[in-house]
């Protein structure tokens, strides 16, 4: 029995870690979905649509790496997280920029707009 497999009732530490990571990931996707419905304008919805998934993706990829630890899995996991982190902000930026420039946002819920006049 290896150090990773101790526990009670046959539940190993690795199973617990896997379970927690899957739940975190699911919660993040759920929050993103709810935020998408509840937030009022394009710019707010972007936060819900692009952000919680970063943690969700990290959690689910870490989960795969933990439950199937091999060099190939871990290197691929690192590559996935790296590229998701690199590309997600770019797509968010493009949509946000387009939304701002075409006026698809609510000015009444902004406490300040320091971009006005600079665009």
């Amino acid at each position: 029995m290896s150090a990773l497999e101790w526990g009670f009732d046959g539940i190993g530490v690795r199973d617990v870690v896997t379970g927690v990571l899957v739940l975190v990931s699911a919660l993040m996707c759920f929050a993103a979905g709810v935020g998408l419905l509840r937030f009022p304008d394009v710019l707010s919805r972007l936060h819900a649509a692009t952000k919680p998934q970063i943690l969700g993706v990290i959690a689910i990829v870490a989960d795969v790496a933990v439950s199937n630890p091999s060099l190939a899995t871990i290197t691929l996991a690192v590559a996935i997280v790296f590229f998701q982190s690199l590309t997600a902000p770019v797509s968010a930026h493009m949509v946000g920029r387009a939304a701002y420039r075409t006026g698809h946002f609510r000015t009444d819920i902004l406490v300040t707009d320091e971009f006005r006049g600079h665009d």
């Binding site: 509840r38 710019l43 952000k51 943690l55 701002y100 006005r116």
Partner: peptide, 25 residues
């Protein structure tokens, strides 16, 4: 990322959400 994700998730799910944002330079 972890902290802010949980905060945003709570804002999205939690009760009493009142939209209030800012655009800053």
């Amino acid at each position: 990322i972890v902290l802010a994700s949980l905060q945003i998730a709570w804002i999205a799910i939690g009760p009493g959400y009142k939209p209030s944002n800012a655009v800053i330079a």
